[in-house]
Design a binder for these strands. Structure first.
Lengths: 231, 231, 231, 231
DNA sequence: TATGAATGAGTCTTCATTCAT
DNA sequence: GATGAATGAAGACTCATTCAT
C-alpha cells in the first residue's frame, strides 16, 4: 500500500501511523497514497461500528485527519467509499485464507484445521461481520456492482472439495456432501455465534465473550462438523 | 385528510386495519390501541428494512398514517420505539415456538422436526433477522434494558434437552452435547444462510433465494445436524 | 391573506410587518399564515435579485426571520418555493391589469393608456423581470407544471382585441393586426429597455435609469406603437 | 488519460478542435491557445445555459477537457472567465453586424433588411440572450469594468442614423426619431420574443419555437417597425 | 387523544480557490 | 504550461425532538 516516494523526509513519516486513530501530522506534505489509506482505515472503523446509515462522512473525515472534501475526491460518494471499504475487507479475508496450507494433512486433521481457522477468523473482529450484515441489509446493492469482489473467489471451497474427496477415498467421510453447503455451515455455526453474540448473551444469560465460552464454542463447532460428515 | 369529529358511523370502521399497510381513513376517530398498533407495524417495516439509523421518524409517521407527535406520545423516543418493535418481534417468535409439540415423537424424528422448524422460520422473513443484526450492531444496548425480553426464554432449548436425553437413553444420540450450543448451531446454519443470502448469492454466483436452492439447503442442514449428534 | 384568528392578542401582531425586511418578533406565537407570508416575501427578494441558483435557502430563512426548516415545511423544496414566488408574482401582475378600465375611451386614447400602463408597470420593479428571465433560463420548467398560472390569462390581450376592433371600425387603425403579436411587441419594447437597462447604459454610454431618459423612452414607445398600427 | 509527451504526430492533431464539444485527446501536447479556446468555449456553454451562479468551474473544466487549475491560470477567477465569455460574445455579435452592408439600398429596403437581420440574429441562439440577462441580473457589474467592450460600439446605430436621414430626405420616414431609441425598440420586439419564448409559450398556449410562429413574428416585427416610422 | 408548527443540529455533497509538484 | 492534491465554507435538505393549541 505504501508508495515509497524516495524523498529524504518521507522515510520518517511513513514509519508509524497508528491505524484507526485520528492522524495529526505536523508536516502536511502531499501524500495521496497515505491520505487515501487514512480515509479508508477511518471509514472501515466508522462503517463497521455504526453501519452505513449510522456512519457520517464528517466523522470519517475527522478520524482520518483528512479534509472532508478529500473523501469525495478519492471515492466519489459515501457509497463509493463504502464499496472501497467492503472490497478491502474481502481482500484481507481472502488473503488470510490463502495462507492456509492443508494439502499435506490427513483428511480429518485438515478438516479440523479448516473449521478451527474459520472459527478463529471471527474472534475479536467484528469489522467484517458488521460490514457483511450492513451490506445484506442493503441487499448486496454495492457488492453486485463490484467486479473486483466477484473475481475474489474464496479458496476455502476448493480446499474443502479436496479434503472431502480425500476423506471419502480414505473411508473416513461420507460421500455426497456439497462443499459449498458445508462451507456455509462451517461459516454459519461460527459467524452466527459472533455476529449475534450480544443478543445471545442476554437471552442465554451467559457472557459469550469470555475466553472460556469461546473455547467451549470452538470445541463444539469442530466436533459437530466433524461428526456431521463422518462416514 | 378531511377531519370529521367522531360520528356514529365510526364504530364499524375501527374494526379491521390491515397491519403493515399505510392506513388511509376518511374518518379519524380516537382509537389509541389502533394508533399504537399502526405505529408499531409501520416502525417494524421501516426499522427492519433500513436499520435503526437509516429509519426515520417521519417515514414511520407517514407510513402509519399517524401524527409524528403520536410516536413520542406512545413510545417516548426513537429508541423507545425500537425497543417496542424488538420486543414485539421476539414475542412473535416465541409464540410460534410454543406451538411446536414434539413430546410424542421419537428422538430422531423430533430432532428433524425441530431443525426443520427453525430453518423454516427464517424463510421469507427478513424482519427478525434484520432487527437482530441491527441490535447486535448496537451491542444489544436496548435488549439489555428490557426486562420483558429477558423473561421470554426460548422454549426450544428445553425441548432440545429433552430430545437429547431421550435420544441418549435410546442409544441414537451421543452424550455430552450442550443443548444451548446445539441450539446456536441449529440456528446458525439456518440464520447465516438467510441473513447473508444476498452477499452469498453474489460470491457463490448462485441464486440462493430460489426454491430449489432453499430446499437443498434445508436438506443439508437437517442431515448435517442429525449426523453431527448421532451416536 | 391574513387569516383573522380572533385571539385577543393577535390584533396587535398582525398590524404591521414590514414586508421584505428581516422580521424579529419578541413574542414568537404561532402564526402559520404569517410565517408562510414572511418566507414568500423574503424569497421573492432573494430569488429576484440573485436568480434561482444564486439565491440561498439560508439567506431566505434569515431574511424571513423564520427557521430554515420551515421553508421545507411549507414549500417542500427550493423549487417548490420558487414556483410559489413565481405564481404570486404573476398573480400580482394580473391583478394590477384587471384594475385597468379602458372601455369608455376612444380607441387611440385607450391604446395610448394601455401602452403607457404596460411601460409604467416595469418602472422601479425589477422583481418580475428577473423572475421571468430566470424562469426562461430554466426553460419554464416550473411554470409548465403550474396549473394555477396557466389559468391566469392576461386580460390585456382581450382588451387589445377590443380596442383594435373599435379602431378599425372607426378607421383609425389598420386591420389585420394580431392582438397577441401586438401585445408581445408592446411588452417587448418596454421590457427590453428595463430588463437590459444596465448593459444598455454601458453600451450606449447613457444613464437609462434617469427620470429624463425614462420619460423619453416612454414617449418613444407610445409614439412608435401608435404610429405602427395607424391606418 | 494516458499522457504521452509530444510525439511527432501531435502537429496534425492540434489542427481542428470542434469548438464547444468536450475534447478528448490521446496526445495532450502543450498548446496554450487551444487550451484557452477550449475553456472559453466550454464556459460559454455552461454560463449561458446555467447562469453565472449556476455554472460550476468543475463542470467547465470537465467539459473543456482542461485542468481545473488552468482556468485560474488563464482567467484568474470565475468572474474573470465570465467577463472573457461576455467579451467574446459581444465581439461575435459586432463582427456579424459589420458584415451587413445596407448603404446601396433604398431607405425602406435598408430598414427592412436591418430589422430582419436583428430578428434573425436571435434565432436558434440563446447563448447571447442568456448571457445578457445574467449580466443584467448582476447590474452589468462585469461589463462596467471592461474597456474592451465599451469601445465596441454597435455599428447598427450609425447605420440607422444614415437610413433614417436618407428616408426623411426622401419623404418616406417621419423626422425626429432618435436612432438609439429606435434601435432599442427593434432589438426589444425581437429580443423579448426569444428571451421569454418559454414562458410566453406557456402563457399564450402556443409553441412559439415552431417555424411557423417564428415566421409570423418576423413579419409582424418588420411591419410594425416600418409602419411606426413611416412619414 | 391528537395535531401541525417550530427548532437547531445534523445529513451528504459541491463550491471556488490555492498549494506543491 | 500543466496537473492533481488539498482546503474551508457553503450548498440543499433531513434529522429527532418539543412547543402551543
Amino acid at each position: 500500500m505504501t508508495k515509497t516516494k524516495a524523498g529524504p523526509a518521507s522515510a520518517a513519516e511513513t514509519a508509524a501511523a497508528p491505524e484507526g486513530a485520528a492522524v495529526k501530522r505536523e508536516v502536511r506534505t502531499r501524500d495521496p497514497e497515505r491520505t487515501r489509506g487514512n480515509i479508508l482505515a477511518a471509514a472501515t472503523v466508522e462503517f463497521s461500528s455504526r453501519g452505513f446509515a449510522g456512519a457520517s462522512i464528517d466523522a470519517i473525515a475527522k478520524r482520518s485527519g483528512a479534509n472532508r472534501r478529500m473523501i469525495y475526491h478519492y471515492f466519489g460518494s459515501k457509497r463509493g467509499l463504502w464499496l472501497a471499504v467492503l472490497e478491502a475487507a474481502y481482500e484481507r479475508v481472502r488473503t488470510a485464507e490463502l495462507r492456509l496450507h492443508l494439502e499435506q494433512l490427513a483428511p480429518e486433521k485438515a478438516m479440523r484445521a479448516l473449521v478451527a481457522f474459520t472459527f478463529d477468523s471471527f474472534i475479536g473482529e467484528r469489522t467484517f461481520i458488521n460490514l457483511l450484515n450492513s451490506e445484506n441489509l442493503h441487499q448486496a446493492r454495492h457488492l453486485k456492482g463490484s467486479t473486483r469482489i466477484k473475481t475474489m473467489h474464496s479458496p476455502l471451497i476448493g480446499m474443502l472439495q479436496d479434503i472431502l474427496d480425500k476423506g471419502v477415498a480414505a473411508g473416513v467421510f461420507r460421500s455426497g456432501i456439497d462443499p459449498a453447503q458445508l462451507w456455509i455451515s462451517i461459516a454459519g455455526v461460527s459467524f452466527f455465534y459472533f455476529s449475534n453474540i450480544f443478543t445471545l448473551s442476554v437471552i442465554l444469560d451467559r457472557d459469550l465473550m469470555s475466553k472460556k465460552q469461546i473455547a467451549e464454542r470452538r470445541a463444539h463447532v469442530v466436533d459437530l462438523i466433524l461428526a456431521g460428515i463422518r462416514a
